[in-house]
């Protein structure tokens, strides 16, 4: 099957980099920044969000950027998807420990540990909705301000959760009247609303439900005031142009498979059109489906090249 070129539009610069500029606010590589650019990669389960996160981080590393990729769901797969050696650094941030870490940081000292063991952390988490999301974003903000990285790619949890993660900050500001959580929420909001410091990359499949969910997610981003850096349409299948010649052996079965491929490809093209319609000025990249049942660093490396807009 002819591969679909990673057609990237609106990549506004003539920068010869491997793939990242289309996701950047002004199209230039953020080398030597005091604060890292945070890219939050969002998408519903099964769209390949983790693979795309790894591909973006791999592309950033190839561009010579100091890149960190952060996993939030505690799965070890992220490490296997990134090249070893000069690839991005991988770090896991867990909601459970982030709150405790944060309380330690803001001077609760040993008391934070006592709070944790007594179950108070659990109660605090339940009392203030979104507090776990906030401390996770707070931890990402802290890493971004560290100065050690140019770009931080965050593989966020599934779409519904990503939306609540983004709205958690405003939600908390509504209900929490003071204290360190409010300060943290204000600092995270500053980061999220600054297009030079953070942006969202939405990952979807060329299917109706994921595209619908992406539409809702993008609305949430706009409401919250987070910049949308780009939309990646992942695992798109194309169909061969040539018809099945008549008279070949097994023609009926071949034709059935061919018809299905055609109808899927046609539906995918219609969904990609919808993505363009909702994208407006936001860049869209289309990645071809690979004939594999699992991802590895080599396949992710190929995705990273596709993201660059050039051919592999």
């Amino acid at each position: 099957m002819p591969p679909i070129d990673g057609s990237v539009e609106e990549s506004a610069t003539d920068n010869t980099s491997a793939g990242l500029p289309w996701l950047l606010p002004d199209g230039t590589l953020p080398t030597g920044r005091a604060r890292a650019l945070v890219l939050l990669v969002v998408g519903k389960g099964g769209v390949g969000r983790t693979s795309v996160s790894a591909a973006i981080a791999t592309a950033a590393s190839r561009d010579g950027l100091r890149c960190l990729i952060v996993g939030l769901d505690g799965r070890p797969t992220l490490r296997q998807l990134c090249p070893v050696g000069d690839g991005p650094e991988v770090k896991m941030v867990s909601a459970g420990t982030a709150l405790e870490d944060y309380l330690l940081d803001v001077g609760f000292g040993g008391f934070a540990r006592r709070l944790a063991t007594s179950g108070v952390i659990e109660v605090v988490g339940a009392a203030a909705p979104g507090i776990h999301d906030l401390v996770v974003l707070g931890r990402v903000k802290q890493l971004a301000n560290d100065g050690a990285w140019d770009v931080i790619v965050v593989d966020t949890p599934a779409a519904g959760h990503a939306a609540s993660m983004l709205t958690s900050v405003d939600g908390l500001l509504d209900i929490v009247d003071g204290g360190p959580i409010r300060e943290q929420a204000l600092a995270v909001r500053d980061m999220l609303s600054d297009p030079t410091r953070s942006a969202v990359v939405a990952v979807t499949l060329a299917e109706t439900t994921p595209v619908n969910e992406t539409t809702e997610l993008l609305q949430t981003c706009t409401e919250v005031g987070v910049r949308i850096a780009g939309i990646v349409v992942n695992a798109v299948e194309s169909a061969p142009a040539s018809p099945i010649p008549s008279g070949v052996r097994g023609a009926a079965l071949w034709r059935e498979l061919h018809d299905e491929a055609q109808s899927r490809a046609k539906a995918a093209m219609a969904e990609i059109d919808r993505v363009h319609a909702i994208a407006g000025d936001v860049a869209v990249a289309v990645l071809a489906r690979r004939p594999v049942a699992g991802m590895d660093a080599a396949t992710v490396g190929a995705l990273a090249r596709d993201l660059a807009g050039g051919s592999a």
């Binding site: 099957m1 002819p2 169909a239 061969p240 142009a241 040539s242 099945i244 010649p245 008279g247 070949v248 052996r249 097994g250 023609a251 079965l253 071949w254 498979l257 491929a261 004939p291 594999v292 049942a293 699992g294």
Partner: peptide
């Protein structure tokens, strides 16, 4: 679904590539 094992000789290049792609995917799955 796995396509038939043998690819017909009358297939154009894009059909051959497509059938190989599908066989590879079906096998991996």
């Amino acid at each position: 679904p796995s396509p038939p094992i043998s690819v017909p000789s009358g297939f154009d290049d894009d059909l051959v590539e497509w059938s190989e792609w599908m066989t590879q995917l079906a096998t991996a799955e």
